[in-house]
Structure formats: C-alpha cells, structure tokens
Design a protein around this nucleic acid. Structure first.
Length: 651
RNA sequence: GCUGCUGUAGCUCAGUGGUAGAGCGCGUCAUUGGUAAUGACGAGGUCGGGAGUUCAAUUCUCCCCAGCAGCACCA
C-alpha cells in the first residue's frame, strides 16, 4: 500500500497503518508533535487505520488546523467538566466558532459566574490527566438507546436525525463519552493551557426561537498562553473602540430610555452626520440622482397595496388616525381608533413609486433616479437594539431607479462603481460582496429571474468586485447584491445593497408609455450605499477608533493658549481658522497646557494650535497632532492654509 | 421577543438591614504655566420604578422598566 507525502515522495506501508505509526516511522519527535492527519485531504484521527493508497499530511501544533482541533477538544473537555460538576445537565452540541468554541447545555438552573470558574478548574484537571480520545463506531439503535437511557434526549434526537448512511461515531475520553464526528487530538493533554471560558448566554435548541432555550458557554482556546493573552488583549482593545463608549467620550450623541432605539445627536455628533450626508448628496447629485423627500406617516392603505402590511407589519409602528381623548377619565383613544390606521414608514420605496406615478412617464424619461435621506421607523425587538448599529429610527441613503429591462446592467454597473468610490473615499476597501439568488418562494417566472441574476452577475464582473453567490437568499421580489463591512469587534455589518424588484411596480401599478404607445411596467432597482447613516457612522467610529478623517471630524482644530498673555493673539488665530472654513475652537481657559492637551486628546481633536508668548511675538503656532509627541512651529498663515487643504472633503 | 447579568452623583465605580462613599467632571478661590492630570475649598444622590417582609429596606422578596451579552430577528 502506497502512502504519498506532502513533498510528493511515496513510501510503502502495510494496510491498516495509522497516522501515528507513520509519524513514528519518520521520527520520534514528529510522533510527539503530531496531533492529527489529513488523509486524502480529510482531517482524521492519528489512530484512524489507512486501508488503501492515500496521500497524507501529518498535522502538528504549528499547522493552521491545530487551532480547530484544540478548540473542538476543548469543547469536549468542557462538556465533560460540566457533567462531572453538574450531573443533571444534558449535553447538546458544541461546535467551533471564530476564535473559539461553545457548547450548549440543557439544565433547569442557569450557570453562575462561580460555576464557570469551577468548570474551568475542572477542565484543567482533565487536561492534566491527558486522557486519550478513543473513537468507536456504534450501532445506530444502540447509540439511541444508550443516550436515551442516560436521559440525554437531545443527543438521541441528533442521532435520530443523522442521515442513514452516516456512521454513528462516539468519542470517549476517560470515563466520559460524546457523540462526535471528530477528529480529535490523541489526548486531552494536547489542548494545553491556552484557553479560557468567556461568557454564558442563552441559545435556542437548533437555533429555533419556538424551541426551548439552552444555556450556552463560550470559550476561546489557543496554542499557548501567549496567544491567549494576545487574543484577550485584542478583545479589550475592541471594547475601547466601542462606538457607544466613544460617542459619550467625544460628546457625539446619547440614548435614553424614553426614546429607546433613537439617537439624541449632540452638536459635535451632528456635524459628523451632516458631513456624511452632504458628501453623499454631492456624489448622488453628480451621478444623476434627483433628491426627494417623502412623508413619515402614511395611510395603511398604501402599506396594504405595497404588501408591507402583509409581510412586514410586525416591524411597523402603527398609529391610529384619531384625535386623542383629553378627558382623563376615559381611554385616550376611542373605540373607533382602529377604523383608520396609519403607519410610520419602515421603508421609502412605496412613497418613491408614488412620485414616479405622478403624471405620465415615457420610455424617454427612463431611467428615473430618485434619492432620499429617508427617515425610517422599524419596530425592532428590544433585544435587537444596539447603539447606532441597530435602531428603531434611522436614516437610509435610499435610492430607487425606475428603468427598462435593458438598462439594468448599465445602472447596476454605475451603482457598483459609485459604491466602490464612496467606500474608498470613506476608507473602506475591504468589502465582502454577495449575490443572493432566487429563493423558493418568489414572484416572477424563471426566465425573468435568469435574466435578472445574469444582469447583476454581469454588472459585478464588469466592475471587478470579488463576490460570492448565495443560492436561495434573494428577496421574494428579485435577486440582490449585498455589501458588507467588518467592524473593529469583528462583527459584520450589512451596509450597501442593490435589489432588483419585479413586484412593487406591479403591486402599485407604476407604468410608462413605451415606443409602441402601450403601457409597460418599469423595473425597480432599490439601493443604498451606507445603508443607514447612523449605522455607518457607528462603523466608522469603531473602525477609526474615534480618530475620524479630518473632513468629517467635528472639531478640526483647537487653539489653546499657554498663558493668558497670548489670549488676544489666540483670538486672531481662531478667527482666521474660522474664516478659512475650519471647524475650530478656542481654549483660553485658565488651565495648564498639559491639561488642555490631555483633554482635547481624549475627545480626539486631531490638531491643536498651541500659542504662548513666543508664538504671539513671531506670529506662529506650535502644531500638535493627535497621537504625536512632536510639534512643528509654523507661521500661522501657512499653517492654516495647509490645514484648510487637509480638511477638504474627498468630493 | 427569549436566557442570563447589571441598574448607587454628570461619568467610571466602591459599599451597607439603622436613609451613603471614591476618583474624574462641575463651581469658587489661588496659581500665568511650554505639550496627555497645578493646588485648596465647595456644591451635587428619594441608591431605576412600584409593591411586599421588617420597628427600620439603597441592602431581603416579588412585579415592572431600562441597559449589557448572547440567541432569535434584521426587505
């Protein structure tokens, strides 16, 4: 039997040889270092017998796969520890995730923080014992009976649902065992000490909110303590740039319970907001969009016609169209309140169609491009709210293109280019793009979908954007392209989107007169680039750790005095800054320069002009940039000129 | 919405069955200084809301609200 090694060399072994034996045949040290084996590309146990010719790769701790194995073994050890300490607990599933693992347990009592510490301690004991992982294939019925007898109903359910052709594999470590596909490292001792349990949370059985809630324990695991420490440090760093924290520190915005899910923008924060909006407005205008503004509160009839009432109602704020009762002794709204309902708009599309529908449109008018900074309200579940990232009131940079089918590709290419330009202006060049294709439930015939999907795919190819395709993820009304950005804490945020819609023009009866003199349905392209202005600002804050690009930053320059004798000169410099269009502030407080520098550094002011008697005498400023220890002395005119240039928006 | 944790001064947090404390911030005064905290003094709290247990509740119990983490959701 021939075994092919990664370097291409081939050696003969007798049938049934294991990875461990192969490793031993090479060197003792390799055997010691090896933790798993790839057999014909498939990651397997070192003790897995190899019965036919195969190409193999011995995996050691240094390989990328090691983390995967360490984490998964760690999950098993955690489950063992939990059942040792809390025998009444059922185990369910425990997969790897990015940077770690979790395991879901079923028990009546939740785990406490102290429990977690105890579990971790127990895990270290198990690892110290270095028990061997042993795989066995069980009869399906035996496995089901075994787990049912043990009271492990979740495991039994999992086995029952495994496909018939799949082996039921069970791994044991010491006196504990678990259903598992594997592979595992040779012993629990191979996990090492670089792991930590992080948090407890609830999670639904099989990810289904109608099923029972289990207790999930999250952990992280690394090759060694050093890697673990680095990861924990990184978590701490990410926490520091949480946009909610920065928002308070930089005096940008706040939230309060009377308006949960909506932002109170403070003066400084609203400068950011306005800069972003103004920039986008310029970009959209020169790309041929006409800006519009549509109503917040719209009669239910339109939402019924658009289909939102049927498909989106649970996310809408519904308002009765009655005058509230002013008599304190009776109910605030009358029994007729529900005769006529209105709703705050959760989306702008139906309103845009209304504007399109005014008057008669000719094919010559197409494409019609509308853009709106549309303020939307969505009745999000309380648990979903998250700072600026998930709000109940937010502003979409929403646009709709009404066009002919032949214009879809061109319009899509133009959009992709615009989006790329804007993202790049804002400092995001790493964008994950996905093309979502037809779902099972859909409107429109297959020919139309074929064409629509091809149009979007062609557009993406033309713009050279890398993308993946998600089958079945499209909206019921058409395929879509999603653009996602990763924030500092590693969360992925969907920002931009381009959606083809065959449905809404039909539902709302939008039409244009074609060359043939007959009415035709336009195709509707929905799109957003930032998605939500608020969310994008949140992503920006985290991504830049608060140190926003100069043109967006609320206070671009602070003029700070060293002594009060420079006050008059500082006033002049400050005035000159303002005259140059720079957002400046003057700090002539009776404080030491150390104090002023520290304070403005904390609020992330990018540039300080420090002036004392020397500068006043020479008409200079001492320029101090955020994060730099150095200072440059420069004449104040040229300093302002340079700064004004640097403060210019990218467009 | 579900599970868990948390809620004390503007902010960050300590603390207790006998109605509260620190640091920062804020105010006043002194200080005029050279690039990430000058000093002193002072003001500031119905301890998230409601109910219960108790002679007495910020502390214990229950309910509600909000925040946080995760899950579910996210046209």
């Amino acid at each position: 039997m021939n075994i092919t090694f990664p370097d291409g060399s081939i050696r003969e072994f007798s049938s049934g040889v294991t990875g461990m034996e192969i490793a031993e045949s090479i060197s003792k040290s390799l055997a010691k270092a090896s933790i798993a084996i790839r057999i014909n590309g498939k990651l397997s146990d070192l003790l897995e017998p190899i019965n036919t010719d195969a190409s193999i790769k011995i995996i050691t701790r240094k390989d990328d796969e090691a983390l995967e194995l360490i984490r998964h073994d760690c999950a098993h050890v955690m489950a063992q520890a939990v059942q040792k300490l809390f025998p009444e607990t059922q185990v369910t599933i425990g997969p790897n995730i990015e940077d770690g693992f979790f395991y879901d347990f079923a028990r009546t009592e939740p785990f406490s923080t102290e429990d977690i510490e105890a579990i971790e301690k127990e895990m270290r004991l198990i690892i110290k014992r270095g028990e061997a992982f042993k795989a066995e294939i069980w009869e399906r019925d035996k496995a089901i009976t075994y787990f049912k007898d043990k009271g492990e109903t979740y495991k039994a359910e999992l086995i029952e649902d495994l496909p018939d052709n799949e082996d039921i594999k069970v791994y044991s470590q010491g006196d504990w065992l678990d259903l598992c596909r594997g592979p595992h490292m040779p012993t629990t001792g191979h996990i090492g000490t670089g792991f930590k349990l992080l948090k407890i949370a609830g999670a639904y059985w099989r990810g289904d909110s109608s099923k029972e809630m289990l207790t999930r324990i999250y952990g992280t695991a690394w090759r060694d303590d050093k890697e673990l420490k680095a990861y924990l440090m990184q978590l701490e760093e990410a926490e520091k740039r949480d946009h909610r924290k920065l928002g308070t520190e930089m005096a940008l915005f706040h939230f309060q319970q009377e308006a949960q899910g909506s932002v109170f923008w403070h003066p400084r924060g609203f400068i950011i907001y306005n800069q972003m909006e103004a920039y986008l407005r310029r970009r959209l205008k020169s790309s041929g969009y006409n800006e519009i503004k549509t109503p917040q509160l719209i009669d239910n009839k339109l939402w019924e016609a658009s289909g939102h009432w049927g498909k989106y109602r649970e996310n809408m704020f519904v308002v009765p169209d009655v005058i509230p009762n002013t008599d304190d002794n009776s109910s605030i709204i009358s029994e007729h309140a529900f005769d006529k309902l209105m709703a705050l708009k959760p989306m702008n599309c139906p309103a845009h169609v209304q504007i399109f529908k005014q008057g008669t449109k000719s094919y010559r008018d197409l494409p019609v491009r509308f853009a709106e900074f549309g303020c939307c309200h969505r009745n999000e579940p309380h648990g979903a709210l998250h700072g600026l990232m998930r709000l109940r009131q937010f502003t979409q940079d929403d646009a709709h293109i009404f066009c002919h089918e032949d214009q879809i590709t061109n319009e899509s290419v133009a959009f992709c280019d615009l989006l790329k330009t804007i993202y790049s202006d804002l400092g995001f060049n790493d964008v994950a793009v996905s093309l979502s294709l037809r779902p099972e439930m859909r409107v429109g015939d297959d020919d139309l979908w074929d064409k629509a999907e091809k149009d979007l795919r062609d557009a993406l190819k033309q713009t050279g954007l890398k993308f993946k395709e998600d089958i079945g993820e499209g909206a019921f009304y058409g395929p879509k392209i999603d653009y996602k950005i990763r924030d500092a804490i590693g969360r992925i945020w969907q920002c931009g989107t381009l959606q083809l819609d065959f449905n809404l023009p039909e539902r709302l009866d939008a039409s244009y007169i074609g060359k043939d003199g007959n009415k035709h349905r336009p195709v509707l392209l929905h799109h957003a680039i930032l998605g939500s202005l608020e969310r994008f600002i949140g992503v920006m804050l985290e991504s830049y750790a608060g140190k926003l690009p100069l043109w967006i930053t609320p206070v671009q320059c602070v003029v700070a005095t060293i002594t009060s004798s420079a006050d008059k000169y500082a006033q002049q410099v400050y005035q000159a800054l303002k005259d140059s269009g720079i957002r400046a502030e003057l700090d002539i407080r009776n404080e030491k320069i150390n104090y002023k520098v520290r304070e403005h550094s904390h609020t992330k002011v990018p540039v300080m002009f420090v002036v004392g008697e020397r500068e006043a005498k020479d008409s200079t400023v001492a320029i101090r940039r955020l994060g730099s220890k150095d200072q440059n002395i420069e004449s104040f005119e040229s300093a302002i000129e340079t700064l004004a240039e640097q403060c210019k928006p990218p467009y």
